[in-house]
Design a protein around this nucleic acid. Structure first.
Lengths: 193, 193
DNA sequence: GAATTATTTTAATCTGGATTAAAATAATTG
DNA sequence: CAATTATTTTAATCCAGATTAAAATAATTC
């Protein structure tokens, strides 16, 4: 039995599903998207989703985890590629923004966190806390190596995360703008540093 | 018949209601708050809300309008009090942030806009477009009078709005932090300008 | 204080959409 | 190919929470 292959197929389908779900949630809001909407986007029937997930709540939860993962990946990648504080930061901005304007996957604005079930909520909150902490650490490092001007890292970090996570609110897929964003937005953000 | 007084009473009750609703939506998310929740917070029964509003949809819609109004007011006030571009901006930051961390009224993160009915959605979007435009105009003015460094006002404006509107995501009522925010956050934002 | 209007409650209804169970189809394996 | 496992569908439920209608209470007016 091709355990691995099966596993992968399942995983792949599930991943497609999360992406579709995220897209719906982004476009129509959480309360505005029914499982039917998500299923239709995949050419499936709503009941089929339950083969992959046990509830709508779990579906958003997984979307949020995925969003958090992608953010973390962007930061990790930047860290592994550069030494200098500011260089890391600029890379991170670029990767994170690319991800944000590229596949419309992640839902940066996790508005439904409050209605997640306890453990899910805690986990998601922990992930984003962790990410903030990591980013602040990078900021600190930049300050230490002199590439970043001293600042209140907590506030500065939150300000920047806000700017990035806010992007979906005003970017709606225009590819021209996407390019501009990737090229210029990192600098806009870096200005204050 | 005390037309005015009655009118005011009704208006006041409605205003209280919007505030309560906003508080619930902020705390529990839209899908997570039932009309009962809102009503309870006011010491009322859910059916009573329908005396003021014709649906839950209209309730969020009104919350959003209110949030937009408060944002606009902050900017208007700043404009009427100062001349210099940067001074206006700093004031605006302060007022907007004060409003944000003060009464927990407005819902800056209008996640349910996509599920508003057409006219409501259009109106809310128009309000926030208008606000962005106004803020960008202030930025331009600042650049013109030399108090603000030249920049891409569209991106810079969006970056800043993101930082401000993101605040509710990490500020949860700690009064110490509220003070710090009001005092320091405007400067953090202004740094990049 | 009787009549009128404003506000709230009680007690149903109504409904969309989530969820489930059982059956059908498709894929895999040996 | 027969048997087993994986995936999807069909066809019901089910249910919280929105909405409504009618009745009750409170406030105002004259």
């Amino acid at each position: 039995m091709a355990q691995d292959a099966e596993e992968t197929r399942f995983q792949l389908q599930k991943a497609r599903m999360l992406k579709a779900a995220a897209q719906c949630f982004n476009q129509k809001g959480y309360s505005g998207t029914s499982l039917r909407d998500v299923a239709n986007l995949l050419g499936l029937t709503d009941a089929a989703l339950y083969y992959y997930v046990r509830s709508k709540e779990e579906l958003v939860y997984l979307c949020y985890v995925r969003a958090a993962d992608l953010g973390r990946e962007a930061l990790d990648r930047a860290c592994s590629e550069r030494e200098n504080g500011m260089d890391i930061i600029l890379r991170y901005f670029r990767y994170h923004i690319e991800m944000m304007v590229g596949d419309r996957g992640p839902i940066a604005i996790m508005s439904e966190v409050p209605s997640l079930k306890h453990e899910h909520r805690e986990e998601v909150l922990e992930l984003s806390r962790q990410h903030s902490k990591n980013f602040e650490a990078v900021l600190e490092a930049g300050i230490k190596d002199g590439s970043v001007a001293p600042c209140n890292v907590r506030m500065t970090g939150n300000a920047i995360m806000g700017s990035i996570n806010w992007i979906p609110k005003w970017f709606h897929g225009d590819p021209e703008l996407a390019q501009k964003l990737i090229q210029e937005f990192p600098e806009v953000l870096a200005r204050g540093l």
